[in-house]
Design a protein around this nucleic acid. Sequence first.
RNA 1: UCCUCCUUAGCUCAGUUGGUUAGAGCACAUGACUGUUAAUCAUGGGGUCCCAGGUUCAAGUCCUGGAGGGGGAGCCA
Length: 462
Amino acid sequence: MKRIKIKELLSSKDFGASVKAEGWVRTKRGNKSINFIALNDGSTINNIQVVVDVANFDENILKDITTGSCVSVIGKLTESQGQGQSVEIQAEKIKLYGTADAETYPLQKKGHTLEFLREIAHLRPRTNTFGAVLRIRHAMAFAIHKYFNDRGFFYLHTPIITGSDCEGAGAMFRVSTLDPKNPPLNEDGAIDYSLDFFGKETSLTVSGQLEGELGAMALGEVYTFGPTFRAENSNTPRHLAEFWMIEPEVAFNDIHDNMDLAEDFLQSLVKYALENCKDDLEFLQKMYDAELIERLKFVVENKFVRLPYTEAIDILMKSEQKFEFPVSWGVDLQSEHERFLVEKHFKKPVILTDYPKDIKAFYMKQNEDGKTVRAMDVLFPRIGEIIGGSQREENYEKLIARIREMHIPEKDIWWYLETRKYGTAPHSGFGLGFERLILFVTGMLNIRDVIPFPRTPKSADF
RNA sequence: UCCUCCUUAGCUCAGUUGGUUAGAGCACAUGACUGUUAAUCAUGGGGUCCCAGGUUCAAGUCCUGGAGGGGGAGCCA
């Protein structure tokens, strides 16, 4: 007999039919003659109620059906006699796949703190919260591929192992097969990476952008969606050492096209969540964040503010707000400044553009004022920077001048420079932090709770 | 990495100016109950007070160092 997913059973009207459901027991309650089992198989946040007439079953099997155990149930699908659910299964056969010793199984029917659940990341997917988060995470990943596919973008697989250390986004993890206890040394005592696996020093990527640009210069519109690694000692609720990033790169787009894309992209994704993850969002709203759905709708329905850096500095300097870090033209904005703009001044998402060139990366297109570059950061309420991007410098002379100014090793990116030498074109792109998007959509507050197995400093279990 | 707070039962926490045998709720076990809804009621078992030193007649409580975790900051997505 074929199993039917609980999501399907709950919306079925096929009363009287014999059905099979399989899943994990959330709770069992009842008395000497009748038991009720709340069964969940992950297909939905909702459980199906299995009604057990105790007289028809071996007492020892029923005793072992505890929270966390796994069972297969065959029975009649019926309209529920009780309140609280419309459909239930009158059990006829129960097979116990796996017990879960009630004395030691760490998940209880009562709520747990998110901190405790992080310590049992191997079991936390079985909770309502993580079930909801992981289903939403999947839906967002799918929506991202769908968004780009619908618009003619190509999914480009950029390398995870990279030989250039000038991707410009922070400290990197080394990739090596050399014996760490006894590495080959060259004449001046340094490690001789010419004898390493790739014949040079290599690391895990911090960004697929540079390769993304190579793809855009051939396919026109591409995006990457892959893991990204940063060896920064960041201990915050917004940073991971291993996270997923989406990086579209589009030939012929200028900074304004880039902003249009970023805004439409984010709004489409949030809209997809509202339309396809209703049950899970309602659960998260009830348990964690009373304004969640309202906030998601607000982002979909309102245009983002677009504001040059220079005007943002003006607003901050004229505001009555006291800041811990003083504001002046040329400084990078602190979290408190970004939060003031997004959460107090405009009360909506803000795209900041045209930052001073000295606080931004070498590849960003230089403006004619000689002072700023065509950068854009999308700032969201609660989570800050969700997207960072720019129009790219396509002029070979300007780009090479900037690279030399910033002492970036040219020999490692000769191939990147050749895109400007042969058939260069204006182009733009950005990076979206996938987990930051999931933070926003789920209303969770710590990024470690929106990825199944988080990697952070001092933490790589599971 | 810096600032700050926290670490007591399986979980969430209380524990007074340092003082007898460290408590509660939930969970768990046993019993009661013929439709429960995080079922309810009764009874019961359960402790390396994060670790290592120190002060003291006496330390869960005070001091020093360390580890782990939360929040804020920086780095960024």
